[in-house]
Design a protein around this nucleic acid. Structure first.
Lengths: 219, 219
DNA sequence: CGGAAAACTTTGCGGTCGGTAGTTTTGTTA
DNA sequence: TAACAAAACTACCGACCGCAAAGTTTTCCG
């Protein structure tokens, strides 16, 4: 799937050629869906899940609320679709998919990511607002958030483990602990940065943290 | 555990007249107010600001919604009162009020706080949910959250500065940066812990972080 | 005890919420 | 051109929202 985060084109009922020749079917259907997703992403980022209304999303997408529910059968389904989209956008920038690269390399990747994130406050905000909401056990995204962190921690821990095995990193480092701390630092700095961008330099602070961390765990 | 709401007169200057100092006044009035505050705290922690309704709080406090609005004239005023209450409860445990104590000492305090917090997930959740919501600029608690972090950072930075001045800490540490990082680590770990308490030992991870941090910045 | 103020209720206004039902428009295909 | 299905619409539902006004009960002080 193509991931195009900045698609804000306004062209509600226009044609879009044969984007997806699937026997029967509209080409404009997929276009509408991506348009709705991008708008919903902005709205959820701005107001959270509970603070966002389908009517407002529908209005901005230039259709009615019922029309919107034709594409996503419930608000919750729309949220999940947005989260999946955001995940896919992340993976494009940070190929965590590729198997464990050395310990130092994976941390450098995250430093790079922090710098990139500073240019897209909207997406960072989506993540921060929704994960904050999602700590409540009955939130629609609770399971998503929990599993996501588990996956991320495991992935980074595996990379660190590989670093230890190869002798690049000291033998006494706790990969799981370091993984959790790295994400904690990133999230915490994102929060402070979003609240007060003028006084908190997220990328610099995170880079500083990683630098000292590396100095400590490198063999 | 109870923090006396002796002076619950909040920022809003009107109202809340000198019920106690002056003669007239119910005894049950203050009791109701604290009861409402404690319930509202739970509700905000569970559902966030936007997900909480005055009707539900009123119901649990055993009065009508209008009766609730007699004590707090708006939902927003109630939120501010709750946040102030939570702040006061924190200050009782962590005397940040007292002027700069040495660098190592203040960090030890926070380690202690992390351990204490693990016993009160409800309050940690209130904080996490609301600060997450509050990154949106038009959120009622946005200013509160921003100012709170600025104050906390400044306070810890001052302590670290004193540590540097006394020679306890290395001269090349950046007190402001370290302060921001300490809070970031704490918040980030709180988030992961709330999402997955069984797999994330917040206190241990934070203690580990502080331990290595101290080893680095100590003279 | 009288009366004023605080505490609280009833009532209801104007509005939004997520979601459903049924129908019409639109484009593709045969 | 006729058949057909996706797409989008109008209309509506019951529930809930924050909140204001006005009236009633309770409490305390002089």
């Amino acid at each position: 799937m193509d991931v195009r985060p900045d698609d804000l084109s306004d062209a509600p009922p226009t044609r879009a050629g044969r984007a997806r020749p699937r026997g029967r079917g509209y080409a404009s259907g997929d276009a509408r869906r991506t348009r709705i997703l991008n708008i919903a992403l902005q709205e959820f980022a701005e107001n959270g899940y509970r603070g966002t209304s389908l009517a407002r999303i529908a209005e901005r997408a230039e259709l009615t609320q019922a029309g919107l529910l034709h594409h996503f059968r419930s608000k919750q389904e729309l949220l999940v679709a947005v989260l999946d989209l955001r995940d896919r956008m992340d993976m494009a920038h940070l190929d965590l998919a590729e198997l464990p690269l050395g310990g130092a390399a994976v941390l450098a990747k995250f430093t790079e990511l922090a710098g990139h994130n500073q240019a897209i406050p909207g997406l960072v905000q989506l993540f921060t607002v929704l994960t904050g909401e999602a700590v409540t056990t009955d939130h629609p995204a609770h399971g998503w958030a929990r599993d996501r962190y588990a996956l991320l921690r495991a992935s980074v821990a595996a990379s660190l483990e590989a670093g230890v095995a190869s002798g690049e990193l000291r033998a006494d480092v706790d990969p799981t602990a370091v993984a959790a701390q790295v994400f904690a630092m990133m999230d915490g700095l994102q929060l402070q940065w979003l609240l007060d961008p003028e006084h908190v330099d997220m990328a610099a602070l995170f880079g500083d943290y990683v630098e000292h961390l590396l100095r400590r765990i490198r063999a």
